[in-house]
């Protein structure tokens, strides 16, 4: 618990300036959103077992199929993808990979976020417009 800065491979490459600082802040904000969502997800989805015949879950699912809530799901996907890919970047840097090119690493991770988001956006909009899944 000492406050003395430890020598690490991260020394002096500017991780706490500009890109690195925003990456950290968004990581923290998306993390807090996901903690809140996970709690809500477990509590609400588990209530679907009340009654034991699945009717509770079915009525929950009807509520969640509203277009506004599908769009909120898509916002959640952004938080998940950002947190996941920035997390990959952090783990890579723990292994000393890309520390001196952390901006390039960050923007590469964001490119993966955009590609994955496009897939989920396609699924969500297909569902909103047609009411069908993309593989049905």
């Amino acid at each position: 618990m000492s406050g003395k800065p430890r020598e690490t491979a991260n020394v002096g490459v500017g991780l706490w300036k500009a890109t690195g600082m925003w990456a950290w802040l968004l990581f923290r904000i998306s993390g807090l959103i996901l903690v809140f969502y996970l709690g809500a997800h477990i509590v609400i989805i588990s209530t679907g077992q009340f009654g034991g015949d699945g009717e509770t879950l079915n009525s929950l699912m009807k509520t969640f199929d509203h277009p506004v809530l599908v769009l909120l799901d898509l916002a959640l996907v952004v938080a998940v993808l950002y947190h996941a890919l920035n997390g990959v970047r952090i783990i890579l840097m723990d292994f000393g990979i890309g520390v001196h090119r952390h901006k390039l690493l960050f923007w590469s991770a964001m490119a993966v976020v955009v590609i994955c988001f496009a897939i989920f956006a396609w699924v969500a909009f297909t569902y909103i417009v047609t009411g069908e899944g993309v593989t049905s």
Partner: peptide, 28 residues
Amino acid sequence: RVTAVLLIVMLAIHLIFTHILNIGELNY
């Protein structure tokens, strides 16, 4: 870090099977 790696793999499977390969509306 261990749970982070697990989450990426498991969450990908969870989301693909629940929301991409599914049959439209979810029900019991």
